[in-house]
Design a protein around this nucleic acid. Structure first.
Lengths: 221, 221
DNA sequence: GATACCATTTTGGGATACCAAACCGGTATA
DNA sequence: TATACCGGTTTGGTATCCCAAAATGGTATC
C-alpha cells in the first residue's frame, strides 16, 4: 500500500469519524507529522479528498469541509435522481439472490448492534442497491453522495423509532425491487430520501448551537 | 496561476483535442519537459485528471483513457437521470431571460461556424441548462459527464442533417422549459439523450477500424 | 530463429530543500 | 484605546534528489 493511499484512507477516516471537526484548519505539515509521511503523499491525498468534498481550500490553506445545510438539501435532490434511476435498473435485471444479500445486511442489525454499525449499514444499503443497477456512474454517484452525507447523518439525533421506520422503509423498497415493481420501488425510495432529508436538516438546524459548541462548523449556505 | 493548474488545463486540452490519442501512454517526465514544469505539479495535475476520467493508471504508469463504448452507454443512462432531474427544476424556477441566453448560444451557430464551435455549443447547451437548475451537484454531474463524452462526440461522424435535428431538439426542449412544461421537457430531453447515444455508439463502432488506424484506442468494454 | 537471462535504463513513489507569500505579534503613533 | 506598520515565522508551491521496481534491450543458449 502506497503512502498516499495510507494518508488518504486514514485522513478520510479521521474526518468522517469527526476526530477532525468540520471547519477545522489543516496544515500539510501537521498531517505529515501525524501520519509519518512526507509532504508529497500528503499533498496527493489532500488533492483526492478535495474531489470528494471532504476537504476544501480556504484561501491558501486547507480546511475540513463544514457541514453545509444547503448542500445537504441539494445532495438529497441529486440522490433522488440517481438512486431512483439506479433502483429502476435494479428492478429490471437484478437477481433475487442479490437482493437477499442486502436484506441480510439489514437483518444483521439488532438492539445489541453498536451505533457505528447501524450508521454504516444505513449507508451501505443505498450504495449496494445502486451497485446492483450495474451502472458504474450511478453507483459512484450514490457512493460519493453518501460519503458526503456521512458526517451529517452521524450527528443527526435519531431516536429508535425513527431508525425502525427507516429500516421498514428499506425493507419495503427491497420487497418492491424483488418483485420487479419499478414504479413502486421508485416511489418508496423517493419518499424515503425526501423524508430522510427533512429529518436530517431539521435535526442539524435545531442542534446547530450545540454542534458549534463542540467546535463543529455548521453553515447555512 | 499555479503550475499545477497550468499543467492540468493544458493537458486536459491536449487530451480533449485528441493531440494525445485515447489509449496513449504518458510519462510524468514527458509531461514535465513538455510543459516546463517540475514533477510535483505534474503529478498533482494527473491526480486531478484521473478523477475526471481523462487519464487512468495502467499498472504503474499513466494512460490517456481509451474511448470505451460500454462506458458511453452507461454515461447516457447517467445523463438521462441527472439531466432530466435538472431540467425539471429548471422548468419550475428558471427565468425566461435565462432560457433566452441559452437559445442565443444555439442561434450563434450557422453554416459558417467552424465545427469546433458547434461541438462546444452542443455540449454547453446541456451544461448551461443544468446550471439553471440551481443544483450544484446536478450541474457538476452534467458537466463532468459531457467532459467525458467530449472526445467521442468529436470523433462521431455527423452529417449536417443530424446536426440540424439535434439543434431542433434542443430548441424544442428550451421551448417546453420556457413554458414550464416539466413533463414535456423531460420527455423531449430523455428522447434526445437516448437518440444521441444510439447515433454516437453506432458511429464509433462502425468507425472503430479507422479510429484504431489513427492510433486511437476504442474498446468495447 | 526463438527464447531465456542478465545488465542497464527508465519510471513512478517518496523525501527534502528552497522560496515567496500569507500570517501573526508586537510596537509605535495618533 | 484603537490602529497602522513592520519584521519574524509559518505555510503552501515548486524543484530536485534518491530509491526500488519495472521495462528494455542485447546476448548467449538451445
Amino acid at each position: 500500500m502506497s503512502q498516499m493511499h495510507n494518508v488518504e484512507r486514514q485522513l478520510r477516516e479521521m474526518i468522517l469519524g469527526l476526530e477532525i471537526g468540520p471547519g477545522e484548519k489543516l496544515t500539510e505539515r501537521w498531517i505529515e507529522g501525524r501520519f509519518g509521511a512526507s509532504r508529497t503523499p500528503v499533498r496527493a491525498a489532500l488533492l483526492r479528498l478535495e474531489t470528494e468534498g471532504l476537504v476544501g481550500r480556504d484561501g491558501r490553506g486547507w480546511t475540513v469541509s463544514p457541514i453545509n445545510l444547503a448542500e445537504l438539501e441539494q445532495i438529497a435532490v441529486y440522490r433522488e435522481a440517481v438512486e431512483v434511476a439506479a433502483v429502476r435498473l435494479t428492478c429490471i435485471h437484478a437477481e433475487s439472490s442479490a437482493i437477499d444479500i442486502i436484506e441480510a445486511m439489514l437483518d444483521s442489525c439488532d438492539e445489541n448492534t453498536p451505533r457505528e454499525e447501524w450508521h454504516r449499514v444505513g449507508m451501505d444499503f443505498h450504495i449496494e442497491l445502486a451497485r446492483l443497477s450495474g451502472n458504474e456512474f450511478l453507483f459512484r454517484a450514490v457512493r460519493d453522495a453518501m460519503t458526503r452525507l456521512s458526517r451529517a447523518r452521524w450527528l443527526e439525533v435519531r431516536d429508535e423509532a425513527a431508525l425502525g421506520r427507516a429500516w421498514a422503509e428499506h425493507r419495503a423498497i427491497l420487497a418492491a425491487a424483488r418483485l420487479g415493481e419499478a414504479d413502486e420501488a421508485a416511489r418508496l425510495l423517493s419518499a424515503h430520501i425526501v423524508g430522510s432529508r427533512d429529518r436530517l436538516v431539521t435535526s442539524l438546524a435545531n442542534d446547530r448551537r450545540g454542534l458549534r459548541a463542540r467546535g463543529f462548523a455548521v453553515v447555512a449556505a
